[in-house]
Nucleic acid binder design. Structure first.
Lengths: 250, 250
DNA sequence: TATAAAGGATGACGTAACGTGAGAGTCAAT
DNA sequence: ATTGACTCTCACGTTACGTCATCCTTTATA
């Protein structure tokens, strides 16, 4: 079964405009559209929409929701479990606020004393631990950080950096036919590791390995990297894992 | 005891910028400021802030919160009770969402069937009855017949009206240093009187004089009016009395 | 089958509630 | 006297839509 915008809007309780917006930003593009241009939402679209709305309720910005849903390792059931945890957490906060209100009323009646911190219990922005987990699992914090740094550089610095970058990738591309464990490959990977560390702050070995994983898991990365040569992403990914393991032992 | 912005910010868990913003829009102006311009928040300010944040948590827009808090019949304890009710309601919604998640997971495992409505239970925008109550008691709706009329106007008419309103207040503010009995002041007050009569039905001179009294007796009115200039409320109040007396004689 | 009402599409501008510097002054401790 | 942490006021940027305006389909009804 397929639904038109208004039907979806009424079914799930969002505005038509919102659906348009989600389409605009590529968060939820209906799988089908009639020749007239009318949007037709599928069952699957509804499932995605449910996910979107849960995340939204939990305070995630749309952009973040998008990257999470697009993440190749995104898993709906796992997400639901996490969302559940976050909701329970949120309910806890509400309970605290209710308690705070009760106390405040009593305080007004002179029955009890109240510290100023107590006055705001539950309202405060206590970052939810599960939120972090979601971001780590499916978000791209590290990549975002890196991009921010990149943009903070001057034009010249950016240029310089991209040249170094280019050199390394070309070198790696030329090596990709041999083993990722070869000395040359590992040396090139070390260069890559150092470059990242010099420019984007601390890349722990864990993060480095994770980055390598992303190169093959996330097709946006894969595509970009493979422009230097088919299979480069896979090659780098493996070499990075090897590198991380080696370093770990030493 | 007094607090500087950052202290308040950390105590209650909002950003300094937010506090600046609340000051900018006249939602929460610190009672005191040092000669250097530093904001100093009082105990009372904190109480107001608590109210603001509760309402915000419940989804009220700042503008609405402002009019509610400024409403002369606003009662803090009553508000707390209502807020409590709304929070309980909200908690109920969260419980529903949790249930929805549980069902969805079961559904994914093929254990149960799920209608499309069930899929979005709790997420939907179900307007909270207590919200309406709050709006009725302290929102714009309460200010009486006058505002009903106001709301019956079209957007354009409303806009036009508020511009006229604004013009008159600004004019009055510019005159407030001279005598309330001066010809100019009285002319401006007449404009004000006419505007009220044209838009909100009959304002007897009695009522007009009474309104003037409210401007100084009720600090919430005073605050609002004095945003156009310190002492404007007092000035208008006097000018309105003078005006009413004069009209009465003729 | 014509015709209107209802719904849909695409701009494009508006709004709310801050975030995010920039540039400059202030306070408190050393 | 200096320095580092705060503070102030612009002022522009951002997010997630709301709100027309204008024009085009679809559908219900006569």
């Amino acid at each position: 079964m397929k639904w038109k915008v208004k039907e979806v809007a009424e079914l799930v309780g969002v505005s038509v405009r919102a659906l348009h917006h989600y389409d605009e930003i590529g968060l939820l593009t209906p799988t089908e559209t009639m020749e007239s241009g009318y949007r037709l939402y599928s069952e699957e679209n509804l499932e995605t929409l449910q996910q979107i709305l849960f995340f939204k309720e939990l305070g995630f910005p749309l952009k973040e929701i998008k990257t999470m849903l697009n993440n190749p390792s995104y898993d709906r059931k796992e997400a639901l479990v996490l969302q559940r945890k976050m909701l329970v957490e949120k309910r806890g906060r509400i309970d605290q606020m209710i308690e705070t209100i009760d106390k405040t009323i009593k305080h007004m009646e002179g029955e009890i004393h109240m510290t100023n911190e107590e006055r705001f219990k539950g309202i405060q922005f206590t970052s939810n631990p599960y939120e972090e987990e979601a971001r780590k699992r499916w978000g791209n914090e590290s990549v975002d950080e890196a991009n921010k740094k990149l943009q903070s550089l001057t034009k010249d610095e950016q240029h310089e950096l991209s040249e170094k970058w280019d050199t390394i990738f070309k070198k790696l591309a030329s090596l990709r036919k041999q083993s990722p464990e070869s000395e040359e490959a590992q040396a090139a990977i070390k260069e890559w590791y150092d470059l990242l560390n010099n420019n984007f702050g601390q890349y722990t070995l864990e993060a480095f390995r994770g980055l390598g994983q992303m190169y093959i898991q996330d097709e946006r990365f894969t595509k970009n990297i493979d422009q230097y040569g088919e299979g480069l992403a896979a090659f780098m990914s493996e070499a990075m894992t090897v590198f991380a393991n080696k370093q770990n032992k030493s």
